[in-house]
Design a protein around this nucleic acid. Structure first.
Lengths: 343, 343
DNA sequence: TTGTAAGCGTTATCAA
DNA sequence: TTGATAACGCTTACAA
């Protein structure tokens, strides 16, 4: 049987309370007492029983992270950052995969898992603005992204529109004028696709460039194949873009691949920019310029908001806008990448 | 305050024991009693307190999954499968990222997190055979992969050598003779790289083909860039392979990219096979033939072994060999992919 | 088939 | 600065 606080107390010749005080870094313990307790702990190999502490404290020390699925690189990397940020604060993360399924997203919000965790960081993909009323306030909740808004819950937003506008402006700044956009979801009013397309259009309008339907590449799922196919469609229809804005990085990388396969040079003939700045952007050939949102910052903000809400330290729900920047790499003429054409 | 079992019992006019019986599906409860309890539960919105149950049962219901990092697609997909498999058994997964760091891997084995979880599924990357003695048997442990072996712990192995041999034989079967291997770790005796290279060499020897040092492509980290660079090196040195065996999929995809950039056609000029069969293999252009190890099966085996060990149902440590197969796709002339050359 | 009561290992209250 | 002692909410002998 594992040693308990009582065992430690007996061995050290003190009461359990004193052991508890030591374990919890309670300041008013005489150094020599602390010393004695510490060595008793070491001798017995004592380890605190988490369940007992949790029961007593009324908390589990666990937070949930609900996301579509880990096989999407963006979410895997988000999870990586959230786990790391939580660890810094002594919190343990439990991941729930909702698989872009409305029912499972609602279940993540209300289901039995909520008993196990103290709070939830939730990145929805299926729920929309019309589901605002579903958001519970009871188990502390932090929303990620721009699909649902509510002034009743904490939120970390991405400013998709501004960032997409900045991405487009970057392409304009390197002299491109016929900028294709890849990954469009026609008819959709909400979600990352719509917001980013809006930013793209704003930038073009402000630059006095007419929008050209021939430069819009539709793509349902945002994968590499979709990016390649969307570009193929644009080119096959006879359009001649001098730049491509991929609404995320995998789309951009798929687009890049298709362009290169057709003998077009990146960035000489066509510049490319992506969005999200996943790891892969640093390893593509050429390396991919992308909109960088500091995943680590987002993760840290989310964990901080959630922790404050859990401990009751939080007041009115807050909204945090994540900062972004353009990571300029070779695909738009920046440094740091191998050229796409063999030397 | 949340409702407790006592509240439910009072409302239903029964004892807590009866409520507990209902909640735990104890069979000997009169249907009408069960009915009454159920509606009391519903009325109060009662939810079981996990901490209390865990304290009493001496378990936490959590299992750990220690892996290098989620930003590596293979591990993200492994985590996805493990979480899904655990969920089927009512277990919750906590991910620990060791970052390919020896110290953190040892910490995963012994650190404080072990108090929080009932057991650990561990996929090491830094520890080697010499660390066998470090493996604890006390918190139930299931090893994944082929870096460390011990007859004291349960293990799910991948048969890297046989699988790599089969991969090479597949290339031979489509008529290739000058097969480059990419991702070699020279001098390493242990780990996936060495085991897979051994399989590659076995296949060639059995086919009566001499090993050619010019066809070995070294790569430290197994990323896309490394794969591209290794192939570049082989080609620049003047070798003319008619096939490439990427020791994992990202290496293979990097290699594919480099070949295409140089104007070589896949699979017409050079066939390519990868290893792991990550999602991306289905979306590359052309689609990538790869060694498929049924991640879901591996995950399920690991979770089963661990659960048996936790509940004490397990006897002597078991070793499970994961089955594999070659997923033939376009990169070796199979169907199901777009051709690499535009039509 | 159901009830009583004794813990599980902590933390918190209140004295000392 | 430390110690008794009562919870926290549940499961489980043991009784009834």
């Amino acid at each position: 049987m594992a040693a308990t606080m009582q065992d430690v107390a007996t061995l050290a010749g003190v009461s359990v309370k004193t052991v508890s005080n030591v374990v919890n870094d309670y300041p008013y313990v005489r150094p020599e007492t602390r010393e004695r307790v510490m060595s008793a702990i070491a001798e017995l190999g004592y380890q605190l029983n988490a369940s007992a502490r949790n029961l007593r404290r009324g908390r589990t020390g666990l937070i949930g992270l609900a996301l579509p699925m880990l096989s999407l690189p963006y979410f895997a990397e988000l999870a990586e950052s959230v786990i790391a940020a939580a660890e810094e604060r002594g919190l343990v993360v439990v991941i729930e995969q909702t698989g872009d399924d409305r029912g499972r997203e609602m279940d993540a919000l209300h289901g039995s898992r909520r008993t196990v965790t103290d709070g939830l960081i939730f990145s929805p993909l299926a729920l929309g603005p019309e589901d605002e009323h579903l958001l519970p306030t009871r188990p502390p909740l932090v929303l990620l992204g721009e699909r649902v808004f509510s002034d009743r819950v904490d939120h970390v937003t991405m400013r998709n529109t501004e960032a997409a506008k900045a991405a487009t402006e970057h392409l304009l700044s390197v002299g491109r004028r016929r900028i294709a956009v890849v990954g469009v979801h026609p008819g959709e009013k909400v979600g990352s696709a719509a917001l980013r397309v809006t930013g793209y259009e704003q930038a073009l309008r402000e630059a006095g460039i007419a929008l050209d339907p021939a430069l819009y590449g539709t793509a349902g799922p945002w994968g590499r194949a979709a990016g390649a196919q969307a570009v193929a469609q644009i080119l096959d229809a006879g359009a001649v873009p001098d730049a491509v804005f991929g609404l995320n990085d995998t789309l951009a990388i798929g687009a890049m691949h298709e362009l290169q396969t057709r003998g077009l040079r990146v960035p000489e003939d066509v510049a490319i920019i992506g969005f999200d700045d996943i790891e892969e952007a640093q390893y593509s050939a050429p390396t991919l310029t992308s909109v960088h949102f500091g995943r680590d910052d987002i993760a840290r903000s989310a964990v901080d908001l959630l922790e404050a809400r859990i401990t009751g330290a939080a007041g009115a729900p807050r909204r945090v806008d994540a900062a972004f920047q353009i990571s300029v790499r070779a695909s738009t003429g920046g440094a740091g990448g191998r050229a796409s054409a063999p030397t």
